[in-house]
Design a protein around this nucleic acid. Structure first.
Length: 954
DNA sequence: CTGTAAACCTAA
DNA sequence: TCAGTTAGGTTTACAG
């Protein structure tokens, strides 16, 4: 395990390679800081619980592991008996899926054969787990009714389609006799394009199970004949919607919302024995009709979060020297787990399962096993007993879980791979790879775990944060200023093969690796932020980590469309030409020792879509203007020549969604200001963030050519308006702020990108630059349609404009007297494809130029560093590009890789500072002289400098 | 030596 | 069956 994610440790080379002899002295000495923390946890609990369980923290023999007497904390709190006829059941839903099963007597839906059943998992306020089977909801899609269709043809259509689908099946192992459950006529309108608010007859086709939708759709598209109607192809609508999303949209359920089952409307399942008895491990297992459940919008008291159980774990494997551990050969020797209730600050279960004996660790429980099989078996039982709602860890998705599953299979631990909440569903490993423009090619492993959300912290960080390194050690240091326990992964096997003391050392390490993800999850408020995102966009929590951006927009679009009786077409994806994006104003490169005012359009693309009512439902396709006899006041023509009706004719769905998102965001921000409870504050902050991100992804959705519903007319109109606006802004500012209008100087827009302009107003102070900036923003805004708004954001003083998308400056916004920060865009300091030496050097140079205003100092500093580099006086860690390290470390393990890498990065570094394309790297007649260039020094009149050194270049 | 893709990463 | 957009700078690899 250590190899993949654990190349953290101390930066290699920086610390001496620990030898066994030295270390054995070390670990018996003082306990680490982490051990002291564990001790404090223990003491705090002893006080509050008065020795509730002494056995819980000793090394206990296997056998009575799961007895509540020995481990009272493991199981969930006792679940009071509920009477369905007189009591309601209320729970927060956290995961949702569907399965095919026998119908349950008394519940709606087909009676024969297998029926789709929605399964919701959740937790009550009391911390009890719930599994709720929702009955009677069937998948469906639409096709337009053919011309001349009448309701008396419905039966025939249904029969013909049913037999066509049956015939199409290659095998029918479920022995399905009915595929089409129902066909109904309904009035709907195609959401793509404006057709004069004409609703048409649509056939709503309900299928027996979700997987029958695709063949039915295909058969109808290819050409379908029924009754006396001629053969014809049908365009399908909403046939590509996930069944879970379909259910959630139709029943008004959003991700992580609270569900109420009214009294007398639900049924409690009996013990396992009967055929329709309990199938899950949950404390309450119930049945309800889909029309009977009540979904509460996340407002007021329904914003709260149930006391979810979050389990974090980490495994250690005994790999062979220099070989990445392989599950069919190398044993799992330890598994550390920590369990925390969402909202609390510390884990209440801290345990390590070890192979062979292990000295006790205060504040945690150690369970020792002599057989690896038994260790695995018991850990699986531990997991099922603790019954976590959320499982986290570091790289658990692609390493720990797959390793455990494969190892358990190799050792034939039959009852290991049942990690979900449904008794008879085996957790299996699936390997898949997918591709996207955003992420590139990604190989991924997945394991099904019904009812539990896998929240791999590495995946969260990869999605939400751009970091130089994603090792647990680096990430912990970055966010927590804390690091892993110091154990080199190369000695893990030695520690295991030592004695109970050395294994204890390993256990502390393993525990900490389970603890850190929990701390990070808390610090970054992942659970809250993701829950808010699930609530705002309406998708299940698990989709946020397993799926892309589009599903979130689809979910919102369908919800909005349903209100207006609009249906979404299935479009075949074909990639065409790219469309034109934003304008980047040609920069007037240089160093500015005067204040530069920056004006920004806030939420540019969303506000353009709102201001001009751009939507699928308002798009006028070719010939529509004539056909619908629209007058010039009814529609607009966008800069790209596309036409859309105005909101007076029809208000678009997308503008509506965006308005809802942005007003909800304003409200959340206002509430955030008033709120004093820190916990509620976190929730609100998570929400406003989710709302902002959601608003910004709507534009991208319309432009995604390989997507669910691309509409390039919308996206190219949006960017077209944007281009027009930035140009107009430049002209407005430059025309008003002139000497002839009584201002100190002629204003000049020196740069601008997409939604911003940087203006040299010719004023001497930051204060003036701010004042005029505010006034200018307001004045320019008045030239645009609301809610488009230009805002004054900041003043840069001084400002170094290197190139398009590359600049730096001191950022003034809160005060005119002191700068908030040094802002760097696009420069080596913010790029992750440079080694730290380059980033630090450039950063220091920028500081010297911008803060100290000492360009010569920058040059001197650069000389010094480069001299150190040439003379081999630079620490290896400064020369490493982390990405390359992780790649190379796997190619050749061990120290040799580091040395080779250092050589490679040293030359990379030299190339960066002595770019061959721009200047001569060295003078061959004078081999000790190098000309170096830091690209922006040219703006400070210290362009090329010659450095002389007397070291040999490696 | 020059020109040009491709790879990478960032700005917005 | 799944994947948000375009613009643009910089370095590297490679062909001619």
């Amino acid at each position: 395990m250590a190899f993949n994610k654990r190349n953290g440790g101390p930066p290699f080379g920086g610390l001496s390679q620990a030898k066994r002899g030295k270390m054995s002295g070390e670990w018996e000495d003082s306990p680490s800081q982490f051990e002291e923390e564990l001790l404090m946890l223990e003491e705090a609990e002893m006080e509050s619980e008065e020795m509730e369980s002494q056995a819980g923290h000793d090394v206990i023999p296997v056998g009575d592991l799961f007895s509540a007497d020995l481990n009272p904390r493991w199981p969930r709190p006792h679940a009071p008996t509920l009477n369905p006829s007189s009591e309601t059941l209320v729970f927060q839903q956290i995961d949702l899926d569907h399965y095919l099963g026998a119908s349950v007597a008394g519940m709606p839906g087909q009676l024969q054969g297998k029926v789709p059943i929605i399964r919701m998992f959740g937790v009550t306020d009391n911390g009890n787990s719930v599994c709720c089977h929702v009955h009677g909801f069937a998948p469906y899609f639409y096709v337009p009714a053919p011309n001349g269709f009448k309701s008396e043809f419905l039966g025939e259509f249904k029969r013909e389609l049913n037999s066509a689908v049956l015939k199409d099946m290659r095998s029918n192992k479920d022995n399905i006799s009915v595929t089409v459950l129902a066909v109904d006529i309904t009035r709907k309108e195609n959401m793509y394009g404006y057709h004069g608010r004409q609703s048409m007859d649509f056939l709503r086709i309900t299928m027996a199970m979700p997987r029958l939708i695709a063949p039915a759709k295909r058969l109808l598209e290819q050409g379908f004949k029924f009754g006396h109607f001629p053969i014809q192809g049908y365009q399908s609508f909403e046939a590509n919607i996930d069944f879970e999303i379909r259910f959630m949209v139709d029943s008004n359920v959003v991700g992580c919302c609270w569900i109420e089952l009214p009294k007398d409307k639900w049924r409690l399942r009996e013990e396992r024995s009967t055929s329709t008895g309990e199938v899950s491990l949950c404390q309450y297992e119930v049945d309800v009709a889909w029309t009977d459940l009540i979904s509460h919008p996340a407002e007021g008291e329904w914003q709260r979060i149930a006391p979810l159980r979050v389990l974090s774990f980490d495994i250690e494997c005994a790999g062979r020297k220099g070989i990445f551990p392989e599950p069919d050969k190398d044993p799992v020797i330890q598994i550390a787990s920590m369990v925390q209730r969402q909202g609390e600050t510390e884990p209440f279960i801290r345990t390590v399962f070890t192979l062979q004996s292990c000295t006790s660790i205060v504040g945690s429980q150690i369970l020792c096993f002599t057989q690896e099989k038994q260790l695995l078996q018991s850990w699986a039982e531990f997991l099922r007993t603790v019954d976590p709602d959320i499982i986290t860890g570091y790289n658990i998705q692609n390493f720990d879980f797959p390793y455990l599953i494969n190892r358990a299979a190799a050792l034939k631990v039959t009852y290991f791979p049942y990690l979900g909440r449904v008794r008879n569903i085996r957790s299996v490993l699936k390997e898949s790879s997918f591709q996207s423009k955003q992420m590139g090619r990604r190989e991924n492993k997945t394991i099904n775990m019904e009812g539990r959300v896998q929240f791999d912290l590495l995946q969260v960080l990869l999605r939400d944060y751009k970091l130089r390194s994603y090792t647990l050690n680096a990430v912990s240091f970055h966010f927590l200023q804390e690091q892993k326990e110091d154990v080199q992964h190369s000695i893990i096997s030695d520690l295991q093969n030592g004695n109970e003391q050395t294994r204890r050392r390993l256990a502390v390490y393993c525990l900490k690796d389970a603890y850190l993800p929990l701390r990070l999850l808390q610090k970054l408020m992942c659970v809250i932020n993701y829950m808010e995102m699930a609530r705002v966009t309406g998708v299940p929590l698990s989709y946020l980590l397993s799926r892309g951006q589009q599903i979130k927009v689809v979910s919102q679009l369908l919800r909005q469309a349903m209100k207006q009786n609009l249906v979404m077409p299935v479009v075949k994806t074909e990639t065409g030409e790219d469309y034109t994006g934003a304008t980047v104003i040609e920069p007037e490169k240089g160093y500015y020792s005067v204040p530069i005012t920056t004006l920004d359009f806030s939420s540019l693309y969303p506000s353009i879509m709102m201001a001009h009512n751009l939507c699928y439902t308002t798009l006028l396709q070719k010939g529509s203007v004539e056909r619908l006899q629209l007058s010039a006041e009814d529609f607009i023509k966008t800069p790209t020549g596309d036409q859309f009706v105005k909101s007076s004719v029809r208000k678009g769905l997308l503008p509506e969604i965006l308005e809802n998102l942005l007003t909800a965001r304003k409200r959340a921000k206002a509430e955030l200001k008033k709120e004093t409870d820190p916990f509620k504050k976190q929730v609100l902050d998570g929400r406003q963030l989710a709302l902002k991100i959601s608003a910004n992804s709507v534009y991208g959705f319309t432009g995604a050519q390989v997507g669910k519903l691309p509409c390039l007319e919308i996206s190219q109109s949006v960017t077209g308006f944007g281009r027009q606006m930035i140009e107009q802004t430049k002209q407005l500012v430059e025309s008003k702020y002139t000497i002839s209008n009584g201002y100190q100087a002629d204003a000049k827009v020196i740069y601008g990108d997409t939604d911003s302009v940087m203006v040299k107003l010719g004023v001497a102070t930051v204060k003036e630059a701010m004042e005029i900036g505010r006034e200018a923003a307001e004045w320019v805004s008045s030239h645009f349609t609301p809610p488009i708004k230009l805002e004054f954001e900041k003043v840069y003083y001084p400002y170094l404009l290197i190139n398009k998308k590359r600049y730096a400056g001191l950022y003034f916004s809160s005060s005119a007297d002191t700068h908030d920060k040094m802002d760097c865009k696009g420069i080596e300091t913010v790029r992750r494809d440079n080694c730290p030496l380059v980033a630090n050097l450039i950063n220091t140079c920028l500081q010297k130029i911008l803060i100290d205003r000492d360009p010569q100092g920058a040059v001197d500093h650069a000389k010094e560093v480069i001299s150190d580099l040439l003379c081999n006086r630079i620490d290896i860690s400064q020369l490493v590009i982390t990405k390359e390290l992780t790649r190379t470390a796997q190619e050749y393990a061990g120290k040799q890789a580091h040395v080779e890498l250092a050589e490679r990065t040293r030359s990379t570094c030299l190339r960066t500072l002595f770019p061959s394309t721009h200047s001569t790297t060295w003078n061959s007649s004078c081999p000790n002289q190098y000309t170096f260039k830091i690209p922006f020094l040219c703006f400070t009149h210290c362009f090329k400098r010659v450095i002389t050194h007397d070291a040999k270049l490696c």
